[in-house]
Nucleic acid binder design. Sequence first.
DNA 1: TTGGAAAGATAACAATTGTTAAGAAAAGCA
DNA 2: TGCTTTTCTTAACAATTGTTATCTTTCCAA
Lengths: 184, 184
Amino acid sequence: MLDLLIEKIKTDKEYDDNFQKIFVETEITSKTTLLNEGEIANHIYFIKKGCLRLWFNKDGKDITLQFFFENQAVASIDSFLSDKPSMFTIESIEPTIILSLHKDNFARLLQHFPDLKDGFQEIMYRRFSNYAALFLSRIKDTPQERYNDLILNHPEIIKRVPQHYIASYLGITPISLSRIRNRR
Amino acid sequence: MLDLLIEKIKTDKEYDDNFQKIFVETEITSKTTLLNEGEIANHIYFIKKGCLRLWFNKDGKDITLQFFFENQAVASIDSFLSDKPSMFTIESIEPTIILSLHKDNFARLLQHFPDLKDGFQEIMYRRFSNYAALFLSRIKDTPQERYNDLILNHPEIIKRVPQHYIASYLGITPISLSRIRNRR
DNA sequence: TTGGAAAGATAACAATTGTTAAGAAAAGCA
DNA sequence: TGCTTTTCTTAACAATTGTTATCTTTCCAA
């Protein structure tokens, strides 16, 4: 989605000059927090290289909801859209290069490219739908089933993401994941 | 939300005459299914009297997501809005009197009362936000914690809804709920 | 009113996960 | 390279929940 926007801007003379002011490129190390749970989200991030995760705190432990990789847009959407405290933290799990887009600039861009507006609404819709499915799987399926699903449908996550984050994604302890892995 | 719409219509001369054609009142017995998982939702329901629940199937067992009571609007929203197969079933758990509003009439009403449109969008937003919180609690909290929360914040549910549905809402077996109850 | 179905409680056992702890392997950094 | 930290595995025990089965109570409809 943002990739489309970025292309659009780069081919727009007026905006191209300011591109680097609007999309701020930053290099962050592993374990850098971009947004803390409880803060209000002011940016959308676009991952040029690396990997982020979205998680929230439960009694001192973290529960991971989603992983994001190259060419994906990341934000704590609910917070970004409605200025509410974010329910989630966004953090890097690899050295990562991101493009940050500030809320204000985002609003300006939507005004300047009004034909992106509908697309954005549509994308928000789909994102919500995705979240519903994600949550549903979390309720419906056992950790074992969800791990099998990861192997089948998202082997790249298994390969790239440290196991304790995967355990956190599955909602179990690393110890329990270790057991599941050696059960097969 | 629908209650506002209903009021609005009743004070509108042109529409008042057709009210009973638009909002079809139906009396259903307990355990009547209004919408099956997999079907496309064509109606929003408004509960005049009684109680509905929203659930989905997991390996032959049902998992309840939400209960609805008097004066609440109920729909499988994702399906209703985007014509996708419903992820949920809607079923009565008491003899219930509902007002059914068909999708087409709903669209017509929004056109006839355009000032309701923004409010509707806003409500959709809040509904999504609610769902997020609901799902989150389901992931974050133990059945024990969620049961305590029910007692504290929704005693009417405890009183009114049969225990095996509450167990299904908590995501556990009736047996396990029975144990939790006798643990305190 | 009464008989069958539904709802709820209890028990015994199995399966899964969490917790604590300790050690091995791998990765990262000076 | 060598040292420290992080990551992963394994073990033993506790806690929780699921499963199967039985029994009691409640509810509803013929």
